[in-house]
Amino acid sequence: MTLPSSPDPATAVSGHPLRVGVVGVGVMGADHVRRLATRIANATLVAIADPDAERAQELADEPGAGVRVIADPMELIADDGVDAVLLASPGAVHTEQLLACIERGTPVLCEKPLTMDSESSMRVIEAERAGGRALVQVGFMRRFDPEYARLKQLLDSGDLGRTLMLHQVHRNLTVPNPHFASEMIVRDSLVHEVDCARWLLGEEIASVQVISPTPTRHALEGVVDPQVSIFRMASGAVVTNEVFVNSRTGYEVRCEAVAESGSAIIGRPASGIYTTRTVPGGGAGSWGGGIDPDYRTRFERAYDLEVQAWVDATRRGELVGPTSWDGHASTVVCTAGMESLATGAPVDVALRAPAIRA
């Protein structure tokens, strides 16, 4: 489910550095602002937009930034001095912002989720199709992580035979959001495991079941944490996932692939028996070495490679990485996952092709 991504003179900007605007300067957006200002080649950060004007101005004034602050994100998208947009805004406003980028023919790197529901994500796909060009890359950065890339290469090589199972673990130190809900574990965290399963195995998820163990005492009242989910893939392969957002040990992401002639594990910083323990008084735990405190540390290299690849491809008039279809498929799976969370029963995943417009 792809659109043309060959060089297009209408979208290529190879004659000068890519002028990038960032929408949303929360934790992830601020990280991208600093990344674009200091570590990405052939790109210039020119503008940022966020409802928190004071926060945006602080970022703009940091050494190496020196960018314009535009109050309205839609004004940034419409600005003639912006060649491409990185969306790190809340998912609830992605649809409007993505459609505005597509209407202007502006390439966009959109942090997950693509949109909040399957209907709106399908609108994004159909808008791209109507324009005849793929413009949206979705921020599933694990595809750019060197370990994940090596695992993908190994599985695709066939050296281990047919892949039968994946076991995925995704743990956060803690969640400070006082309004955090059980559904957010599926929509905002498990979504990465959804994309990894589809990408690593090269097929769609046929059904999803979310199981609710006894919650940790650190979870907010009524929040189911941790959660275990099971994906059944189109081929019959099975993927198990643990998502634990209040693990109190640190940020851990790993994946084990089990195939007919061997297995492979990524994300383990030590060999042998690997244990994690809570540090008295709070903070990230340890295994005898350190545990990454959050995703920005664990996947810093992946984010750098992701944004650099997006910049380089955009300057050529191309698109690399996860597409709007990948974002849509993940949204559909997570919607089914939230239904399963409520019932405990497996839920089939039904993907439909976008409408073909005359």
Score class of each variant (00 low, 15 high):
Ala237Pro: 09
Pro90His: 01
Trp310Leu: 11
Arg143Cys: 03
Glu147Ser: 13
Glu147Gly: 10
Pro51Leu: 06
Gly288Ala: 13
Thr38Pro: 01
Ala130Val: 06
Val69Glu: 05
Arg316Phe: 02
Lys152Ala: 15
Val223Ile: 12
Ile291Trp: 04
Arg277Asn: 00
Arg129Cys: 11
Val124Tyr: 08
Thr106Ile: 07
Arg254Lys: 07
Met165Ile: 00
Gly24Asn: 09
Ile211Trp: 06
Gly139Pro: 00
Arg162Ser: 13
Ser271Ala: 14
Ala47Tyr: 00
Ala355Phe: 04
Asp188Phe: 01
Ser207Thr: 05
Ala47His: 02
Ser121Val: 03
Val191Thr: 12
Ala219Phe: 09
Ala130Asn: 07
Glu62Leu: 07
Asp117Ser: 10
Asn42Lys: 00
Val307Pro: 05
Gly26Gln: 08
Arg19Ile: 01
His94Leu: 05
Val333Ser: 00
Trp310Val: 03
Ala78Asp: 09
Arg268Phe: 02
Thr278Ala: 04
Gly289Cys: 00
Thr314Gly: 09
Gly327His: 09
Gly15Phe: 02
His32Phe: 06
Pro213Ile: 02
Arg248His: 13
His179Glu: 11
Gln153Gly: 04
Arg34Thr: 06
Ala10Lys: 11
Leu98Gln: 02
Gln137Lys: 14
Trp287Arg: 02
Ile273Gly: 00
Met1Tyr: 15
Cys334Leu: 09
Pro113Phe: 01
Asp348Val: 12
Arg268Gly: 04
Asp292Arg: 01
Thr249Asn: 07
Asp294Arg: 06
Leu3Asp: 05
Lys152Glu: 07
Ala78His: 12
Val93Ser: 07
Ala234Gly: 13
Glu300His: 15
Ala358Leu: 12
Val239Ser: 07
Thr314Arg: 07
Glu128Trp: 10
Asp31Glu: 08
Ala353Thr: 13
Cys196Glu: 01
Arg162Leu: 14
Ala41Val: 11
Tyr148Ile: 08
Tyr251Arg: 02
Leu109Lys: 03
Gly290Trp: 14
Phe231Tyr: 15
Val124Ala: 06
Pro226Arg: 12
Ser340Ile: 08
Met116Thr: 13
Phe244Thr: 05
Ala88Cys: 11
Ala127Leu: 10
Ala206Arg: 14
Gly267Trp: 06
Thr335Asn: 11
Val46Arg: 09
Ser271Phe: 13
Val191Pro: 02
Cys255Pro: 11
His179Tyr: 12
Met338Trp: 07
Ala257Tyr: 09
Gln137Ser: 15
His192Leu: 03
Ala197Arg: 00
Ser6Ile: 09
Thr276Glu: 08
Glu193Gly: 01
Pro17Ser: 00
Arg162Glu: 15
Glu75Phe: 07
Thr314Gln: 05
Gly288Pro: 11
Glu128Met: 03
Val85Phe: 01
Tyr303Phe: 15
Tyr303Asn: 12
Val332Lys: 05
Glu58Asn: 11
Arg316His: 13
Gly202Phe: 02
Leu99Phe: 11
Gly321Arg: 11
Leu76Met: 08
Gly289Trp: 14
Cys101His: 10
